[in-house]
């Protein structure tokens, strides 16, 4: 269980996150939703241990210790060296983290990533797939994906969602996916956290929110934003 309490973040005078609380039980999948600038990436970076919160805390229970080794983070931007082949990316990460080689190879195969092309020679979709395969190959307790679907065509989006939410899902790990593609992804969420201007707009079990607002998560967000 990950318990986030009243998290806040300021960059200078600018507040980017304010009083954000949620919990994520082990094995569950959280959809982190909201428009650009809502604070999704900042929240993910705090959870990844890359930036400290200005306020509040992140607590871990069930024997999970907060530790960068326990968190696999896939940033939004292409963050690999341009000359890397898939195997180079793997050995680089294996120097720092526990990695599952079989899962990496299976993920590359499932996602049809060319093995003998340098990172810079891959298409945008394939660069994302290679970075995803690395993120999924980590032996982690918490997986964080920051907009892995942005700029990806619809067919490839489904394949990416299938890989991260079903095929390579570890049963006892927790997952957070930040995305704009709400309608496509909403059937995959156990829980949802919707941010608006750094504050919580909606938070809770996806099914409860859908029923409470009588519609899809997307409609729930629209209705909640109007109130």
């Amino acid at each position: 269980m990950i318990q986030v309490n009243q998290l806040g973040k300021k960059y200078g005078q600018t507040t980017v996150l304010q009083d954000v609380s949620f919990q994520l039980p082990q094995g569950q999948f959280l959809g982190l939703l909201g428009v650009n600038g809502a604070g999704k990436s900042t929240l993910i970076k705090i959870l990844a241990g890359l930036t400290p919160p200005s306020q509040g805390s992140v607590g871990w229970a069930n024997k999970i210790r907060f530790d960068k080794a326990a968190v696999s983070y896939m940033p939004e931007m292409d963050h690999f060296y341009t000359h890397w082949l898939a195997k180079d990316a793997f050995s680089f990460h294996a120097d720092f983290f526990a990695m599952n080689k079989q899962r990496f190879l299976d993920a590359l195969d499932f996602l049809n990533v060319p093995l003998h092309k340098q990172f810079s020679q891959l298409s945008k979709g394939n660069r994302t797939r290679m970075r995803l395969a690395i993120a999924l190959a980590r032996e982690a307790q918490l997986f964080l994906f920051d907009e892995p679907l942005s700029g990806i065509d619809p067919f490839a989006r489904q394949e990416i969602l299938r890989a991260l939410a079903v095929e390579f899902r570890c049963e006892d790990a927790s997952y957070i996916l930040a995305t704009h593609q709400i309608l496509e992804a909403e059937a995959l969420f156990d829980r949802v956290l919707v941010l608006k201007s750094g504050k919580t707009l909606l938070e809770g079990q996806a099914e409860t929110i859908r029923l409470q607002w009588g519609n899809s998560i997307l409609e729930a967000i629209r209705s909640a934003a109007k109130e």
């Binding site: 999948f29 939410a165 079903v166 095929e167 899902r169 059937a187 995959l188 969420f189 156990d190 099914e207």
Partner: peptide, 14 residues
């Protein structure tokens, strides 16, 4: 459950 979830792209927990 996993096969079904993959086919329909829904959460395996569901």
């Amino acid at each position: 459950a996993r096969e079904y979830a993959s086919q329909k792209l829904v959460n395996p927990n569901t």
